[in-house]
Design a binder for these strands. Structure first.
Lengths: 318, 318
DNA sequence: CCGTTGTGTGAGTATTTGCCCAACAGACAA
DNA sequence: TTGTCTGTTGGGCAAATACTCACACAACGG
């Protein structure tokens, strides 16, 4: 009893310090005096509050340029939704900003009273987005993973985020206890036929909204880095013209699925229908730009969360 | 054309600087370098973004103590909703925290798809709350003022906030072009009978939710300070046992309306029904505590947004 | 034309903050 | 008991930030 109490008290104190700092506008010295601790401790509390994600900063000024780019993306590519966040010129992070924006967009969906089915892909961007997500209770919704969650080595795939999100939002979750890429087409069929998998696949087809990452298939392809495909397989995909993958499935520069190769063994669900669902890709960065462009061209997605620079590249026809 | 563009650009830049600072985590030096301005200018941009309210900080840790107090308030006083924010021990602000919380609660209501009627009172706390409100477009809703918006000197009452909120949320607004307190009971009847006033009064009775301030009737009563009642009138109210007012109407320590005196001339609408509407008071501070307690006792409100210290006072029976 | 006023700028400076480090307390095994 | 490990504390200091001031410049009115 004392153990959990201590932990809650600690985060409580951190929240209180954070509140005094950010909302009440106290300096750390004042907080220290008020809470009867040293300034350093106050500083630690505040920074704990920040690092624990208790403190959320949002900017609600619509930066004209970003809005404009978003509107042009929607117009030009016939997207249902588009969101553009500012680019930090110096940073080479591939999630900075889009993660926050994706979390905000998810929250908007989750706020819905009516039960929705939320499809979720995988990848670093989504992982970062989920981390930004504020816990909200929405037991009415269902979250379904669109990819397997087993790494080639048998461990849980690190960038599979279904558990994280389900935990945050207290919704029923439907993971896919499968490898991302099966060892053979036959094995994939076998796996998909399993009694515990079929309902998940069916649910994924009924998703109202899906958030997906886009992975490039360059020499540093995440799919390769994470060990889902071998270098030989990657090279073979590149040779045949694959430029990006979504939930493990490779596509060419026109957004047309690659025939054969690893695609025959990808155990992921299908991307939900763009007719009935909002399929949102969250991706930014020059490495992913060709992939995003291709995904749009192939009508694989109808929503996009990206940054200014990427948006410009996409619009310039690049 | 160039003029508005300049202004938007300025806030845009401020937002961008704020974004780089708070979201991207740059230092002001880095921002200065990236935007090609001096560090001081970068600092100015960031602080502009803050002071313009572009930057919103929220803490989403449920501070156990506050939750507990809120639950006890609801339980003890049979409230539909209660929210308790931390107290800043050193500050004597009467809005710090509750303004933000009230804005958040308003936002929750406004997010509703179904059209709602939002009644709004007056006062410093509400004014501060509206300033915290993020602009959202909700043309489906209606906002109705529960009090007149004319000062005794004929100017628009400063703490009447109906215009501010209508502007922020782009909803249809229904102000009451009336003095807060008429010069005689007869004049009040006459005013209320006007063709442009009657629909507003009817609308106010149909409010789904109302946000009200609670004004104390001590020697520094806001109603007196703002010139709506004279010192003699205030003293008379105090003599007869009035301890607080809501939208100009005075009540005693049991929440029972004062009979006669200024109450005969108060031109405000009735407080919406506690049966059909959520009537939320936003108030904190020791000066207002007796008034809050009385408002609860008299069943004038069924929702409360206050701070820790006030919540404790209320619960201690004080 | 000149003064006034308001706005924006950079320099300088005081305050505030982030972080490293040494000290220290409690847990636990030897 | 002692040593060690882990986690927490506060001092000190460099970096970062907020604020004040003087000045430049454009707009405005006399």
């Amino acid at each position: 009893m004392s153990k959990p109490e201590v932990t809650t008290t600690k985060l409580d104190d951190a929240a209180r310090a954070g509140w005094l700092y950010y909302v009440a506008g106290n300096t750390q010295d004042e907080i220290a005096a008020k809470l009867g601790i040293s300034r350093q401790s106050a500083q630690r509390m505040v920074s704990l509050a920040v690092s624990e994600g208790l403190v959320k900063v949002t900017l609600d000024h619509p930066i004209a340029r970003c809005l404009d780019l978003a509107a042009r993306l929607k117009e030009r590519f016939g997207l249902k939704m588009a969101e553009v966040v500012p680019t930090d010129p110096g940073s080479n992070s591939t999630t900075l900003g889009v993660a926050e924006a994706a979390a905000a967009e998810m929250t908007r969906w989750l706020k819905s009273e009516a039960p929705i089915v939320l499809g979720i892909g995988t990848g670093r961007t989504l992982k970062a987005a989920i981390e930004q997500l504020s816990p909200i209770e929405c037991p009415q919704h269902k979250v379904v993973s669109l990819t397997g969650n087993i790494s080639p080595d048998g461990s849980a795939a690190y960038y599979n985020v279904i558990f994280n999100i389900a935990d945050k939002i207290k919704a029923r979750s439907f993971p896919m206890p499968l490898p991302v890429i099966a060892s053979s087409p036959e094995e994939r069929e076998l796996l998909h036929a399993q009694a515990m998998i079929r309902p998940v696949l069916e649910l994924s087809a009924r998703a109202n909204v899906a958030f997906l990452g886009i992975g490039d298939l360059g020499d540093e392809a995440p799919l390769f880095l994470d060990g889902f495909i071998s270098r030989d397989e990657l090279v073979a995909l590149q040779r045949i013209g694959a430029v990006f993958e979504i939930i493990g499935r490779a596509f060419d520069r026109n957004g047309v699925p690659i025939v054969g190769l690893t695609n025959d063994r990808v155990a992921s669900a299908q991307i939900p229908s763009r007719e009935t669902a909002t399929v949102i890709a969250t991706a930014m960065g020059s490495r992913k730009t060709p992939g995003i462009a291709a995904a749009i061209k192939g009508n694989l997605i109808n929503g996009l969360i990206t940054d200014e620079h990427t948006a410009e590249m996409l619009l310039s026809g690049k």
